[in-house]
Amino acid sequence: MNSQSQFYLHTRIPSTFYLWWSHFKKNKLALVALVVFVLFALTAIFANIIAPHDPTAQFTEFVHLPPSWYDAGQTQFVFGTDYIGRDLFSRLVLGARLSLSLALVVVLLSSSIGIFLGVITSFSNFWLDALIMRIMDFILAIPSLILAVVIVAVIGPGLPNAIYAVALVLIPHFVLTTRTAIRQEKNKEYVTAMILDGASLPRLFFTTILPNILPPIVIQLTFAFSTAILEIATLGFLGLGAQPPFPEWGTILSESYNNFMFASWTVTIPGLAIFFTLLSINLVGDGLRDAMEIEKK
């Protein structure tokens, strides 16, 4: 009579990452976005193999050549050439490498500092917490681009400086996310149980709390990645980041800006590259968030 309750179902309990993935892959749009993003990433990695020309080589006989699908276009220059005859396709491919790798550096820099500060504030006393939070509030209060522009203005335009500026702007977001997440978890009973079990602070953080605050941090990472790409491109466009003839996407756009009335492809195509990169990252981020939310429920 009572027999069925004495059998256990021996199913493997899937790992959290597997569960996230299984929810994520149900979202077709996010999956497509992931594929697009991987394609961009592969383009960036194999940029010098893919690019048919030197991005700075000037083909003076082919100035403002339209893309190959126009009648006047040539298959040699798939996306056409710019105002001094450089191959747009090669520039964009190398731009992908530049943008993605710079954004990666920015995210690594800002996330490691930001998460570290976030952990410090949530486990520290009132005064240190108040001090760090006041500084973070202040960085947040200044509009991000203005802050970046001013930093670049002080230390001078150029790529490395732009990276520092964008990384600095992103740090408070990581601090806030980490701090809020840890604060929410810190007073839950499972943490109290670990404290009562005598867990040391590092053990408490790495094995108990960290797995539970991972979702907001992962989402913040994707957000920071797309913001970094956008801000670096914006600084490039404003002439404060990468300097010509560097094939950075924002810089390419700012160089084309003056000629966009008669060579619209030099504006639309680089813009599309930035747009699709950002869109794919944001879609993946959204998909991840949804997947993690479902799992939380």
Partner: peptide, 9 residues
């Protein structure tokens, strides 16, 4: 996801 300088152009 729109870079606004591109959107403006």
């Amino acid at each position: 996801s729109m870079p606004i300088f591109w959107w403006a152009m």
